[in-house]
């Protein structure tokens, strides 16, 4: 079977995010970029399916040159090859524009299965996989925490995480699945994997080759207009009680912990 994994490169969860002066974006210098952590589950799932059922695994990613680092990580983990949607025209696409570009790259591959992370940890919108499924006219199952291949090899039974429990869904391929924590334990890339990854193909795909027009993607096509980004409010300074009788201070602290901090 042919499995495509959609990848996004996101800032590391521990990166300190600073806004640009015009509040239209974040400072990208000095940020450590990583593979979106949820996408690791998608890569792992693709590799496990391939190891069990054979086939080919392709990683598709959109973004500037730096995103090839995340793609190489996926290739080092064992993915077979990559397609890199790389064109200034794709920059500042909204979820629809991004999904259109991914669909254009994925369609010629005719995959049996498309795996994505449940959401990217940067913008947290979880929209691209759903739009992608619509554009490719495929069924979608989101937030998959467990997946069993059907005996026919052309379907799967998936457990979705929902509020207070799980929903069990059967889906026929080709389909789009979004992967949640718990689906598997992503492997480390291996040293031989890293050495092999440098020889694996990452095919660049520009706007012209994608068959899309400049109106389909990028800022011009965006139906979402960012007005501004706001930083998180500064943490208020701690309150210090002193020079009072201890029982009085304890009472005040307990009151604040209960009513203001709401932690007891």
């Amino acid at each position: 079977m042919k499995i495509v994994v959609c990848l996004k490169q996101t800032p590391d969860t521990e990166a300190t995010i600073k806004l640009t002066a015009d509040k239209q974006g974040i400072e990208e210098q000095n940020i450590k970029w990583v593979m979106n952590p949820y996408d690791e589950y998608a890569v792992e799932q693709a590799l496990r399916l391939k190891e069990k059922h054979g086939g080919e695994t392709v990683v598709v990613c959109m973004g500037p040159d730096r995103v090839t680092e995340a793609m190489r990580t996926a290739l080092a983990m064992g993915m077979d090859k990559g397609v890199h949607l790389k064109d200034d025209a794709f920059a500042h696409s909204d979820a629809t524009g991004t999904a259109k570009a991914l669909a254009a790259a994925i369609k010629p591959l005719s995959p049996d299965l498309i795996l994505c992370g449940r959401q990217a940890i940067d913008w947290d919108m979880a929209q691209v996989p759903a739009i992608l499924a619509e554009l490719l006219d495929m069924p979608q199952v989101t937030v998959v925490a467990k997946m069993e291949m059907g005996a026919d090899g052309k379907s799967a039974v998936c457990n979705r995480r929902i509020e207070g429990g799980e929903e069990v869904v059967e889906v026929k391929f080709p389909a789009v699945l979004t992967c949640d924590k718990g689906l598997n334990e992503p492997r480390y890339a291996s040293l031989p994997g890293i050495m092999k990854a440098k020889k694996k193909e990452i095919k660049p795909l520009g706007l012209a080759e994608s068959g899309l027009s400049a109106n389909d993607v990028g800022k011009a096509s965006s139906k979402v207009q960012i007005l501004e980004y706001l930083p998180l409010p500064e943490r208020p300074p701690g309150k210090v009680f002193k020079e009072q009788e201890t029982p009085d201070m304890v009472k005040q602290v307990v009151k604040l912990l209960r009513e203001e901090a709401k932690i007891i």
Binding site: E69, T73, A76, Y188, I194, A197, K198
Partner: peptide, 14 residues
């Protein structure tokens, strides 16, 4: 090199 960076990243995480 890119491989040396990737190895640093892998080893650091491990």
């Amino acid at each position: 090199t890119d491989e040396q960076k990737a190895i640093r990243e892998l080893a650091r995480r491990f």
